[in-house]
Each structure stands twice: as C-alpha cells, then as structure tokens.
Write a protein that binds this DNA or RNA. Structure first.
Lengths: 209, 209
DNA sequence: GTCTATAGTCGGATAGAC
DNA sequence: GTCTATCCGACTATAGAC
C-alpha cells in the first residue's frame, strides 16, 4: 500500500507548502499532512533543508518532461501562447505554481537553496529558448534581440503572473492569457510565420536540433 | 535622536525582511536589527501581523510617488522601458524588490494579508495602465487589447524578473532591460509614436485625466 | 523502519517594574 | 514609553524502545 516512504514524505511536503505556504512548512506540519511521525523525516532526509532540496528536484523534473512533450509541436507564437496558457492553467489548478513561488521566496535568502533551485529551473528557461529559436531566431528578427534575455523574461512573466494571481484569486487571470495570445498573434503577423514568405525576409530552413 | 518610534520599528522590519527573508522575520529578529526591545513591537503594533501590514503600506506609498513623478513625462514605449529599467535597478540595489517579493510570498496563504498587499499594489498597476493609455490606447491598437491585462502582465513581469534574479544574482539582469527596451522600440515603430501621424491611424488628442 | 519521549532553542505575547 | 522577566506553545533534532 505505502509506496516508497521517501516519496510519501516528499508528497506530504508538497501538499504542506501548497496549503500552508513556505512559512507554515515545518516537520510537524508535514507529518500532519502525510499522517506519519515527525521523526521519520529526520531518519530519511536528515534535515528539513535536505527534504526541501529533494522536493525541488522531484517536482521540477516531473513537470519539465510534460512541458517538453506538449510544446515540441508548436509552430507559431500564438500557438505558443495558447499552449503555454493551457499548461500554466493546469499547473495553477494543481497548485504547482504556488509551490514554485513559495520555494523561490524561501530560497531567496539562502544561497545554497537558491543555487539548487536555479539549477532545477535552468532547463525550463533553456527550453523556452529552444522554442523561441524555432519560431523567431530563424527570421531576420532573431539577430536583433538577445534570445536568452527574452526566454528569461518569458519565464519570469509566468512566475510573476502566478505570484500576483495568488494574492488576488478572485480576479480570474484567464483573460491575461487570452490577451497574451492576441499580442503574440499580432507580433507573429509582423515578423511572419516560419516557413512562409513575407515581404521582409528570405525563406529559410528551420533547423531541427 | 530617535525619530518616531513606530517608524524606527517599521524600518527595522524592512531591514530584517531584506536580509533574513520573510521566513526569518520574527519579533526577536526585528528587535535585534533595530537595537530595541522586542516588547516594544507589541506595545506599538499589538502583533507581528499588524506590523507587517503597516510595513506594506509604508513602503508602497513611499515608492509610488517617486515612480509617478519620474514616469509622467514619458512619451514612447522605449522611454518607458528605459525609465522603468532605471527605477527597477534602483529598487533592486536598495533591496526594495526583495522586500516586495518576500511580502508577497508570505501573504500568499493568508487571505487578510494578501488582500491588504493587493490593495497597496493596485495603484501601481493602475498607474502602469495610465502610462499605457497615454502611449497606446489612443492608437487603433488600443482597442485590440485589454489594457488592464497588459498592465497587470507588465507589473507581473517586473515582479517575476526580480524574484528570479534574487535566485541567480551572479548573472546580471541589466541586459534584460536593454533587450526589453529594444523590443519596446520595435513595437513602437510598428504602432507609431503618439502625436505623430502614421499610415494606419488618425490623429487624436491624448486625453489628460 | 517507525514509533514515543524528550532535550534544547526560539517563537509570540503579556505582566509589571521603572 | 521602554525595559526585564516570564509563560507557553512550536520548532528542529536526537535517543532509544519496539
């Protein structure tokens, strides 16, 4: 019945952060959520610190694969905005974004934790970058902007929207993604779709990496 | 020598959140930072909760006026990005953005605190909106997008960039704002500058509210 | 591997001297 | 208005029974 105990503890940790926030996440609170004894945490992880690190890795690696599989077929900026909006909505409903922002805030004044969290987040940014490369970098506009900065900014935008939405849950943020989709479509119209001629650019192959 | 005691306590609270994070902010830690007795907090504010609320208001109202005075002269999107980048850089260096994100994260699972923080943040979003109104809403593009959503997204972008920058302080984020400035300039070129004719829009008065 | 019990620290908050 | 002293609950972590 009980799967791996370490996994059970990590899942209880996730549930605790989602419902109590990082400031309310203690060994006792986690044990209450998972219905096991508090001392188990220290037997399996040694410290709360180590448990939080393990929790970061567990949740991050689980999500990145889903994102990758869903976004690899995307071919226009409007599609990107639409799929990203859908994924983000799922994550919101499951509390995954709250989990992330709470872990981030809790790591801000702790260098070791921050470095660890950034490492788990890096593939995410790199992956937004890859998607952008497919859609923009092959156009003449690709050379105009630093794609790393844009990928970083887009990732930050999602994080920021979530953090602020958590503060104001009554105002639905679905329209924000609709608006972003409109904007992306307008932008796409200006730069032209990949694989389709426009007045201002030459036809190019889209590199498959 | 000592100004208002309440102010001293609030300033010690700000210093504590900046250096210890929201999870490390306790009555005792605040008292250490401000070099006064812990009991003073409860005499003047009644509870930590109330002190945090007062701190939110204090810091928010102080900054919004500065932002307003600096941004009211802005007339193009590129200028907007430039001035916003400068202001944001100042805030970063003073730790004000860390303060904000930490307060946000700490308020996420506390409805009363969240509502309070959102209230102090609302003028900020409204004010980004006013700036956008001056720059975009008077063009034909104004009708295409929900300006509230865009103002919300821009505010969220800054918050998100900061939260992520806090995790990765070594990678300088100055280039992010340079890139945003470039993007804004390109966008401006497409929609045309306010007060200047373009092929696709009629001349309009910019309403002064 | 999981539990109870407990040590030791730190938290919010109050009473009361000055 | 500011301090000392203190209550009491919650915390991390460990020792040791089972």
């Amino acid at each position: 019945m009980s799967p791996d105990t370490k996994t059970r503890i990590i899942e209880a940790t996730v549930a605790t952060i989602k419902s109590e926030g990082i400031t309310g996440t203690s060994a006792r609170a986690i044990a209450r959520h998972g219905d096991f004894n508090q001392a188990l945490i220290f037997y399996h992880f040694g410290s709360i610190e180590e448990l939080l690190r393990a929790t970061m890795e567990h949740t991050s690696s689980a999500r990145i694969e889903l994102y990758r599989s869903r976004l690899e077929g995307v071919e226009t900026l409007a599609d990107l905005a639409a799929v990203a909006g859908d994924l983000h909505k799922e994550d919101r409903e499951q509390g995954n974004m709250t989990l992330l922002t709470q872990l981030m805030a809790g790591a801000a004044n702790d260098e070791v934790r921050a470095a660890h969290l950034m490492t788990t987040f890096e593939p995410w940014i790199g992956f937004v970058r890859e998607t952008l490369d497919r859609l923009i970098a092959t156009t003449p506009f690709g050379g105009m902007f630093d794609m790393d900065d844009i990928a970083f900014s887009i990732s930050a935008l999602f994080v920021g929207v979530e953090l602020m939405s958590d503060l104001d849950p009554e105002r639905s943020r679905d329209t924000v993604y609709d608006t972003m989709q409109l904007l992306a479509g307008a932008f796409q119209a200006v730069i032209g779709e990949p694989g389709q001629d426009t007045a201002s650019r030459e036809r190019q192959e889209i590199p498959v990496e």
